[in-house]
Amino acid sequence: MASARIPFPFTAIVGQAEMKQALLLAAVEPRLGGVMVFGDRGTGKSTAVRALAGLLPPMKVVPGCRYLCAPDDRAPCIEGCREKAGKRSEEASVPFVDLPLGATEDRVVGSLDLERALATGEKRFEPGLLAKANRGFLYIDEINLLEDHLVDLLLDVAVSGTNVVEREGLSIRHPARFILVGSGNPEEGELRPQLLDRFGLSVDVRTPTDMGDRIEIVKRCDRFDRDPAAFVAEFEASEQATLDAIAKARKLLPKVQVADEMLGLGAQLCSAVGADGLRGELTLLRAARAQAALAGKKDVKPHHVAEVATMALRHRLRRNVLDDTGSTGRITRAIAELIPA
Protein backbone atom coordinates (compact mmCIF):
# COMPACT_ATOMS: atom_id res chain seq x y z
CA MET A 1 0.00 0.00 0.00
CA ALA A 2 2.42 2.68 1.00
CA SER A 3 5.24 2.32 -1.38
CA ALA A 4 7.77 3.86 -3.66
CA ARG A 5 7.09 5.59 -6.92
CA ILE A 6 6.74 2.39 -8.91
CA PRO A 7 3.10 1.37 -8.80
CA PHE A 8 2.20 -2.12 -7.75
CA PRO A 9 1.49 -4.18 -10.88
CA PHE A 10 -2.21 -4.46 -11.67
CA THR A 11 -2.03 -8.14 -12.50
CA ALA A 12 -0.19 -8.90 -9.28
CA ILE A 13 -3.26 -8.00 -7.23
CA VAL A 14 -4.63 -11.18 -5.72
CA GLY A 15 -8.33 -11.80 -6.03
CA GLN A 16 -10.79 -8.86 -6.25
CA ALA A 17 -11.84 -10.06 -9.68
CA GLU A 18 -14.98 -7.93 -9.84
CA MET A 19 -13.17 -4.72 -8.98
CA LYS A 20 -10.45 -5.39 -11.52
CA GLN A 21 -13.03 -6.19 -14.16
CA ALA A 22 -14.96 -2.99 -13.44
CA LEU A 23 -11.80 -0.91 -13.69
CA LEU A 24 -10.88 -2.53 -16.98
CA LEU A 25 -14.34 -1.81 -18.37
CA ALA A 26 -14.03 1.82 -17.28
CA ALA A 27 -10.66 2.03 -18.97
CA VAL A 28 -12.03 0.59 -22.20
CA GLU A 29 -15.16 2.73 -22.24
CA PRO A 30 -14.58 6.06 -20.50
CA ARG A 31 -18.20 7.06 -21.11
CA LEU A 32 -19.33 4.49 -18.59
CA GLY A 33 -19.04 7.13 -15.93
CA GLY A 34 -16.63 5.75 -13.44
CA VAL A 35 -16.59 3.14 -10.74
CA MET A 36 -17.73 3.24 -7.15
CA VAL A 37 -16.00 0.79 -4.88
CA PHE A 38 -17.71 -0.09 -1.63
CA GLY A 39 -15.69 -1.81 0.97
CA ASP A 40 -13.62 -1.80 4.09
CA ARG A 41 -10.26 -0.23 4.49
CA GLY A 42 -7.22 -2.22 3.57
CA THR A 43 -8.76 -4.18 0.73
CA GLY A 44 -6.43 -2.90 -1.94
CA LYS A 45 -8.87 -0.43 -3.47
CA SER A 46 -6.46 2.41 -3.98
CA THR A 47 -3.68 0.01 -4.96
CA ALA A 48 -5.83 -1.33 -7.78
CA VAL A 49 -6.85 2.09 -9.09
CA ARG A 50 -3.33 3.42 -8.98
CA ALA A 51 -2.05 0.27 -10.64
CA LEU A 52 -4.50 0.61 -13.50
CA ALA A 53 -3.58 4.24 -14.10
CA GLY A 54 0.06 3.22 -14.17
CA LEU A 55 -0.72 0.45 -16.60
CA LEU A 56 -2.45 2.53 -19.24
CA PRO A 57 -0.42 3.59 -22.24
CA PRO A 58 0.77 7.19 -22.27
CA MET A 59 -1.55 9.60 -24.04
CA LYS A 60 -0.77 12.36 -26.49
CA VAL A 61 -1.07 15.87 -25.14
CA VAL A 62 -0.44 19.34 -26.43
CA PRO A 63 2.91 20.40 -25.04
CA GLY A 64 2.68 22.91 -22.23
CA CYS A 65 -1.08 22.73 -21.89
CA ARG A 66 -2.12 22.89 -18.28
CA TYR A 67 -5.37 21.10 -19.05
CA LEU A 68 -3.75 18.16 -20.84
CA CYS A 69 -5.65 18.82 -24.06
CA ALA A 70 -5.49 16.20 -26.78
CA PRO A 71 -3.87 17.41 -29.99
CA ASP A 72 -6.66 16.02 -32.14
CA ASP A 73 -9.49 17.36 -30.01
CA ARG A 74 -11.62 20.06 -31.61
CA ALA A 75 -12.85 21.65 -28.40
CA PRO A 76 -11.17 25.01 -27.89
CA CYS A 77 -8.81 25.34 -24.99
CA ILE A 78 -8.86 28.52 -22.94
CA GLU A 79 -5.15 28.76 -23.20
CA GLY A 80 -5.22 28.40 -26.95
CA CYS A 81 -2.69 25.67 -26.46
CA ARG A 82 -3.02 24.14 -29.91
CA GLU A 83 -2.46 27.44 -31.64
CA LYS A 84 0.64 28.01 -29.57
CA ALA A 85 2.01 24.52 -29.96
CA GLY A 86 1.23 24.13 -33.62
CA LYS A 87 1.52 20.55 -34.74
CA ARG A 88 3.77 19.45 -31.93
CA SER A 89 2.59 16.92 -29.41
CA GLU A 90 4.13 14.99 -26.59
CA GLU A 91 3.36 11.98 -24.52
CA ALA A 92 2.28 12.09 -20.94
CA SER A 93 1.22 9.32 -18.63
CA VAL A 94 -2.47 9.05 -17.84
CA PRO A 95 -3.05 11.27 -14.82
CA PHE A 96 -4.13 9.79 -11.56
CA VAL A 97 -5.38 12.41 -9.14
CA ASP A 98 -6.12 11.64 -5.55
CA LEU A 99 -8.73 13.99 -4.17
CA PRO A 100 -8.10 14.20 -0.46
CA LEU A 101 -11.03 14.33 1.90
CA GLY A 102 -10.08 17.69 3.27
CA ALA A 103 -9.54 19.37 -0.07
CA THR A 104 -10.83 22.89 -0.27
CA GLU A 105 -12.98 24.14 -3.07
CA ASP A 106 -10.05 26.24 -4.31
CA ARG A 107 -7.88 23.19 -4.64
CA VAL A 108 -10.56 21.28 -6.48
CA VAL A 109 -11.87 23.77 -9.02
CA GLY A 110 -8.84 26.00 -9.15
CA SER A 111 -8.61 29.63 -8.24
CA LEU A 112 -6.90 32.86 -8.95
CA ASP A 113 -3.16 32.44 -9.05
CA LEU A 114 -2.38 34.50 -5.96
CA GLU A 115 1.30 34.49 -6.57
CA ARG A 116 1.02 36.08 -9.98
CA ALA A 117 -1.74 38.40 -8.92
CA LEU A 118 0.34 39.81 -6.08
CA ALA A 119 3.69 39.79 -7.80
CA THR A 120 2.89 40.99 -11.29
CA GLY A 121 -0.72 42.06 -11.06
CA GLU A 122 -1.61 39.50 -13.69
CA LYS A 123 -5.00 37.86 -13.42
CA ARG A 124 -4.33 34.24 -14.12
CA PHE A 125 -6.21 31.07 -13.34
CA GLU A 126 -4.44 28.43 -11.32
CA PRO A 127 -5.95 25.12 -12.38
CA GLY A 128 -7.15 22.84 -9.64
CA LEU A 129 -7.36 19.11 -9.26
CA LEU A 130 -10.20 18.84 -11.77
CA ALA A 131 -7.92 20.19 -14.49
CA LYS A 132 -5.13 17.88 -13.45
CA ALA A 133 -7.44 14.90 -13.73
CA ASN A 134 -8.63 15.75 -17.23
CA ARG A 135 -8.49 12.62 -19.40
CA GLY A 136 -7.36 10.53 -16.46
CA PHE A 137 -8.65 9.20 -13.18
CA LEU A 138 -10.01 11.16 -10.26
CA TYR A 139 -9.90 8.99 -7.19
CA ILE A 140 -11.82 9.94 -4.08
CA ASP A 141 -11.31 7.75 -1.09
CA GLU A 142 -14.12 7.86 1.44
CA ILE A 143 -16.30 9.80 -0.92
CA ASN A 144 -19.23 9.37 1.42
CA LEU A 145 -17.50 11.60 3.93
CA LEU A 146 -16.81 14.36 1.45
CA GLU A 147 -18.38 17.69 2.23
CA ASP A 148 -21.71 18.32 0.64
CA HIS A 149 -20.84 21.36 -1.37
CA LEU A 150 -17.87 19.57 -2.91
CA VAL A 151 -20.00 16.61 -3.81
CA ASP A 152 -22.47 18.87 -5.61
CA LEU A 153 -19.66 20.50 -7.45
CA LEU A 154 -18.10 17.21 -8.52
CA LEU A 155 -21.44 15.94 -9.73
CA ASP A 156 -21.90 18.94 -11.91
CA VAL A 157 -18.47 18.66 -13.45
CA ALA A 158 -18.56 14.91 -13.87
CA VAL A 159 -21.80 15.15 -15.79
CA SER A 160 -20.94 18.08 -18.01
CA GLY A 161 -17.29 17.24 -18.57
CA THR A 162 -16.57 20.92 -18.13
CA ASN A 163 -15.46 22.87 -15.15
CA VAL A 164 -17.00 26.32 -15.05
CA VAL A 165 -15.36 28.77 -12.70
CA GLU A 166 -17.07 32.03 -11.85
CA ARG A 167 -15.28 33.53 -8.92
CA GLU A 168 -12.81 36.17 -7.90
CA GLY A 169 -13.47 38.05 -11.09
CA LEU A 170 -12.51 35.04 -13.17
CA SER A 171 -14.80 33.53 -15.69
CA ILE A 172 -13.33 30.38 -17.07
CA ARG A 173 -14.44 27.07 -18.43
CA HIS A 174 -12.11 24.24 -19.16
CA PRO A 175 -12.51 20.57 -20.04
CA ALA A 176 -12.57 18.18 -17.12
CA ARG A 177 -13.42 14.74 -18.39
CA PHE A 178 -12.25 12.14 -16.00
CA ILE A 179 -13.07 8.66 -14.86
CA LEU A 180 -14.40 9.12 -11.38
CA VAL A 181 -13.40 6.36 -9.02
CA GLY A 182 -14.85 6.62 -5.57
CA SER A 183 -14.53 4.40 -2.61
CA GLY A 184 -16.20 4.29 0.72
CA ASN A 185 -17.57 2.15 3.47
CA PRO A 186 -21.37 2.38 3.55
CA GLU A 187 -21.35 1.77 7.28
CA GLU A 188 -19.69 5.09 7.85
CA GLY A 189 -22.28 7.12 6.10
CA GLU A 190 -24.21 6.71 2.92
CA LEU A 191 -23.73 8.37 -0.35
CA ARG A 192 -26.58 10.42 -1.63
CA PRO A 193 -28.50 8.54 -4.31
CA GLN A 194 -28.05 11.39 -6.75
CA LEU A 195 -24.29 10.99 -6.58
CA LEU A 196 -24.43 7.24 -6.52
CA ASP A 197 -26.46 7.20 -9.70
CA ARG A 198 -23.73 9.07 -11.56
CA PHE A 199 -21.32 6.25 -11.12
CA GLY A 200 -21.49 3.84 -13.98
CA LEU A 201 -20.43 0.73 -12.15
CA SER A 202 -20.28 -0.20 -8.54
CA VAL A 203 -18.52 -3.07 -6.91
CA ASP A 204 -18.44 -4.45 -3.40
CA VAL A 205 -15.04 -5.46 -2.20
CA ARG A 206 -14.47 -7.56 0.84
CA THR A 207 -11.20 -8.41 2.42
CA PRO A 208 -10.14 -11.72 1.02
CA THR A 209 -11.25 -14.44 3.37
CA ASP A 210 -9.35 -17.25 1.78
CA MET A 211 -6.30 -17.89 3.87
CA GLY A 212 -4.21 -18.88 0.88
CA ASP A 213 -5.03 -15.58 -0.83
CA ARG A 214 -4.21 -13.61 2.27
CA ILE A 215 -0.86 -15.28 2.63
CA GLU A 216 -0.12 -14.74 -1.04
CA ILE A 217 -0.96 -11.03 -0.70
CA VAL A 218 1.38 -10.63 2.23
CA LYS A 219 4.12 -12.43 0.37
CA ARG A 220 3.71 -10.42 -2.80
CA CYS A 221 3.70 -7.13 -0.92
CA ASP A 222 6.84 -8.15 0.87
CA ARG A 223 8.59 -9.09 -2.33
CA PHE A 224 7.47 -5.82 -3.84
CA ASP A 225 8.82 -3.93 -0.82
CA ARG A 226 12.19 -5.59 -1.09
CA ASP A 227 12.82 -5.16 -4.74
CA PRO A 228 10.09 -3.34 -6.63
CA ALA A 229 11.92 -3.46 -9.93
CA ALA A 230 12.42 -7.22 -9.87
CA PHE A 231 8.84 -7.76 -8.76
CA VAL A 232 7.48 -5.61 -11.56
CA ALA A 233 9.68 -7.41 -14.06
CA GLU A 234 8.18 -10.68 -12.95
CA PHE A 235 4.73 -9.48 -13.95
CA GLU A 236 5.77 -7.69 -17.06
CA ALA A 237 4.36 -10.28 -19.42
CA SER A 238 0.93 -10.31 -17.84
CA GLU A 239 0.90 -6.52 -17.55
CA GLN A 240 1.69 -6.27 -21.23
CA ALA A 241 -1.06 -8.75 -22.03
CA THR A 242 -3.57 -6.65 -20.09
CA LEU A 243 -2.37 -3.52 -21.77
CA ASP A 244 -2.76 -5.14 -25.17
CA ALA A 245 -6.22 -6.34 -24.29
CA ILE A 246 -7.26 -2.80 -23.31
CA ALA A 247 -5.78 -1.32 -26.47
CA LYS A 248 -7.42 -3.93 -28.64
CA ALA A 249 -10.75 -3.54 -26.91
CA ARG A 250 -10.66 0.22 -27.31
CA LYS A 251 -10.06 -0.17 -31.00
CA LEU A 252 -12.75 -2.79 -31.33
CA LEU A 253 -15.34 -0.97 -29.24
CA PRO A 254 -16.80 1.27 -31.95
CA LYS A 255 -17.38 -1.79 -34.11
CA VAL A 256 -19.19 -3.82 -31.49
CA GLN A 257 -22.83 -4.28 -32.48
CA VAL A 258 -25.68 -4.24 -30.03
CA ALA A 259 -28.54 -6.15 -31.55
CA ASP A 260 -32.15 -5.16 -30.91
CA GLU A 261 -32.72 -8.27 -28.83
CA MET A 262 -29.95 -7.12 -26.51
CA LEU A 263 -31.54 -3.69 -26.15
CA GLY A 264 -34.76 -5.47 -25.26
CA LEU A 265 -33.00 -7.70 -22.79
CA GLY A 266 -31.42 -4.70 -21.09
CA ALA A 267 -34.79 -2.99 -20.74
CA GLN A 268 -36.39 -6.15 -19.37
CA LEU A 269 -33.65 -6.67 -16.87
CA CYS A 270 -33.85 -3.09 -15.62
CA SER A 271 -37.59 -3.18 -15.18
CA ALA A 272 -37.43 -6.60 -13.55
CA VAL A 273 -35.14 -5.36 -10.82
CA GLY A 274 -36.75 -1.93 -10.58
CA ALA A 275 -33.71 0.12 -11.50
CA ASP A 276 -34.65 3.75 -11.73
CA GLY A 277 -34.07 5.84 -14.75
CA LEU A 278 -32.66 5.49 -18.18
CA ARG A 279 -29.12 5.83 -16.98
CA GLY A 280 -29.08 2.30 -15.64
CA GLU A 281 -30.14 0.83 -18.93
CA LEU A 282 -27.66 2.88 -20.89
CA THR A 283 -24.82 1.97 -18.57
CA LEU A 284 -25.78 -1.67 -18.65
CA LEU A 285 -25.57 -1.79 -22.43
CA ARG A 286 -22.41 0.25 -22.62
CA ALA A 287 -20.78 -2.01 -20.08
CA ALA A 288 -21.94 -5.10 -21.94
CA ARG A 289 -20.46 -3.64 -25.10
CA ALA A 290 -17.15 -2.98 -23.38
CA GLN A 291 -17.25 -6.48 -21.99
CA ALA A 292 -17.73 -7.91 -25.47
CA ALA A 293 -14.89 -5.76 -26.76
CA LEU A 294 -12.60 -6.98 -24.02
CA ALA A 295 -13.45 -10.52 -24.97
CA GLY A 296 -12.61 -9.70 -28.58
CA LYS A 297 -16.17 -10.22 -29.81
CA LYS A 298 -18.01 -8.02 -32.29
CA ASP A 299 -21.50 -8.83 -31.04
CA VAL A 300 -22.94 -8.40 -27.61
CA LYS A 301 -24.32 -11.71 -26.39
CA PRO A 302 -26.68 -12.30 -23.49
CA HIS A 303 -23.87 -13.60 -21.32
CA HIS A 304 -22.03 -10.31 -21.71
CA VAL A 305 -25.07 -8.53 -20.34
CA ALA A 306 -25.32 -11.02 -17.51
CA GLU A 307 -21.67 -10.59 -16.61
CA VAL A 308 -21.92 -6.86 -16.11
CA ALA A 309 -25.49 -6.53 -14.86
CA THR A 310 -24.66 -6.67 -11.18
CA MET A 311 -21.98 -4.00 -11.45
CA ALA A 312 -24.09 -1.72 -13.57
CA LEU A 313 -27.34 -1.93 -11.64
CA ARG A 314 -26.54 -2.79 -8.05
CA HIS A 315 -26.50 0.80 -6.84
CA ARG A 316 -29.53 1.98 -8.77
CA LEU A 317 -32.27 -0.11 -7.24
CA ARG A 318 -34.93 1.78 -5.45
CA ARG A 319 -34.42 1.05 -1.83
CA ASN A 320 -37.15 -0.48 0.15
CA VAL A 321 -36.62 0.28 3.79
CA LEU A 322 -38.44 -2.80 4.90
CA ASP A 323 -36.92 -5.22 2.41
CA ASP A 324 -33.63 -6.62 3.49
CA THR A 325 -32.81 -8.59 0.38
CA GLY A 326 -29.56 -7.22 -0.93
CA SER A 327 -29.51 -5.58 -4.34
CA THR A 328 -27.07 -8.18 -5.55
CA GLY A 329 -29.49 -10.96 -4.72
CA ARG A 330 -32.34 -9.29 -6.58
CA ILE A 331 -30.23 -8.82 -9.67
CA THR A 332 -28.89 -12.35 -9.62
CA ARG A 333 -32.44 -13.62 -9.42
CA ALA A 334 -33.57 -11.50 -12.34
CA ILE A 335 -30.61 -12.61 -14.44
CA ALA A 336 -31.37 -16.24 -13.73
CA GLU A 337 -34.94 -15.73 -14.84
CA LEU A 338 -34.22 -13.77 -18.00
CA ILE A 339 -31.00 -15.22 -19.28
CA PRO A 340 -30.74 -18.96 -19.54
CA ALA A 341 -27.28 -19.99 -18.57
Binding site: M1, T43, P208, I217
Partner: peptide, 16 residues
Protein backbone atom coordinates in the same frame (compact mmCIF):
# COMPACT_ATOMS: atom_id res chain seq x y z
CA UNK B 1 -1.20 -13.62 7.84
CA UNK B 2 -2.70 -16.51 9.77
CA UNK B 3 -2.10 -14.71 13.06
CA UNK B 4 -3.91 -11.60 11.84
CA UNK B 5 -6.88 -13.65 10.76
CA UNK B 6 -7.00 -15.46 14.06
CA UNK B 7 -7.21 -12.14 15.87
CA UNK B 8 -10.10 -11.05 13.71
CA UNK B 9 -8.20 -8.36 11.84
CA UNK B 10 -9.93 -7.91 8.54
CA UNK B 11 -7.62 -5.41 6.93
CA UNK B 12 -4.95 -7.02 4.84
CA UNK B 13 -2.79 -4.03 5.50
CA UNK B 14 -2.06 -5.27 9.02
CA UNK B 15 -0.10 -8.43 8.13
CA UNK B 16 1.75 -6.55 5.40
Amino acid sequence: AVGAAALGIASIRAPI
